[in-house]
Computed example of a mutant assay.
Amino acid sequence: MTRPDGPIPNPPLCPRSASFVHMACLALSAAALFAEFLIAYSLMVGGGATAPLRPAWAILVAGLLLLALQGVLVQTALVRPLREAGLRVEQLAQAMEQHTHRDLLTGLLNRIAFEQMVVRELESLRRYGAGFCGVMLDAEGLRRVNETQGYEAGDLALHELGQLLKRNVRKADLLFRWRSGTFLLLATGIGPEQAQLFAEKLRRVVEGHEFRPGVRLGACVAVAQARPEDEPEQFVARMKTALALERERCERDGPEA
């Protein structure tokens, strides 16, 4: 599946633009050298005297060397810092992209990343038939942890839950924190039956894990298969509907763990 590389605002200066400035400065320096050479040569030849020819050539060579030194100084003092600044901007842009696409609490991909990537996956489904399923998991018991042990304990449990889910999904799958204690998984290359088995495995993993002494969570899990005619909103709405039905079933039949 596609990895997150969604668009972010272009920085004011990037390595490509810095390289362009570098080449432009070199071209302008070369043009200036050539122009001054032509001017000096025309002045020398236009004088008509042969006696001062050697001093004129010496002055011309000295001038060209001085201009070359000037070009080196410009390169060192102006162009190189511009390129270094461009590299720093690129590093900052990468850090901003990570911040934009990652949930700070769990370290997982966030809802912004999902909204960009699901569009690509649906387009891949329509063009190439690359099917995938969505698995939505809602953690149960977080409110109880917040009320009895405090919000810091709830945040720690959420972080550990995110890492637990990450360890139990395939490398090709994409795991997102949707909101609060709800997580969403895009599982590629499997049908709804396989996805249902996978969702059940995740539910058992969550319910069998002790997050800290005395802290256990439940999980309500639902599956929806992506369809070629889906828009992102339709796909997500079908997962939400399936999750609501599953929650009603759990409340009706009672918890299994």
Score class of each variant (00 low, 15 high):
E207N: 02
P255G: 06
L243H: 00
R83E: 14
Q75F: 07
R212P: 00
E210A: 11
K166F: 11
R16S: 08
L66Q: 03
E246I: 05
A113P: 04
R177W: 14
T106S: 05
A77F: 13
G218E: 00
E115S: 15
M1V: 11
R143K: 15
L185S: 02
Q234A: 14
A35L: 15
H101R: 06
Q234F: 06
L122A: 05
A31Y: 06
E84D: 11
T100G: 04
L43A: 15
L142K: 05
L13D: 03
V61L: 08
M96A: 13
K201M: 10
L92H: 14
P12R: 13
E207Q: 11
H101K: 02
A199N: 08
L13E: 03
G141F: 00
Q234K: 10
R249F: 06
P192T: 13
A226E: 00
R249L: 12
D103A: 10
L217C: 05
R203M: 10
L92M: 14
Q196Y: 09
H22M: 12
A77H: 07
V74M: 06
G134Y: 01
F235D: 06
Q70Y: 08
A56F: 08
V89D: 03
G107K: 02
E36I: 05
A24L: 13
T148I: 07
E147N: 10
R111F: 05
K171W: 04
L43Q: 13
A18T: 06
M239T: 01
E193P: 00
H22C: 11
R120V: 11
L156H: 12
Q116T: 08
F132M: 04
R88M: 07
S19R: 11
L66F: 07
V118Y: 03
P4W: 09
A40Y: 09
G129T: 10
L165Q: 02
F132G: 03
A85K: 04
G218W: 00
R247L: 13
G129Q: 07
E121N: 11
L78F: 05
S42A: 15
L185D: 05
R212F: 09
E233P: 02
V215P: 00
Y128D: 10
L197F: 03
G47P: 00
E97G: 09
Q163E: 14
G254Q: 13
F176N: 10
M1T: 12
L185P: 01
L245Q: 12
L197H: 10
R143T: 15
L122D: 02
F37C: 09
L165E: 05
A62C: 13
P81T: 03
P52I: 12
L82V: 12
G150A: 06
R83P: 05
L64A: 11
Q234D: 12
F183S: 07
A56E: 08
H99Y: 13
G46I: 10
Q196F: 06
R3D: 09
E90A: 14
R80H: 11
P12C: 06
E210P: 03
L185T: 04
M239L: 15
L60F: 15
H159N: 11
S42N: 15
C220P: 02
A32F: 14
A130L: 14
G48N: 10
R126P: 03
F235G: 02
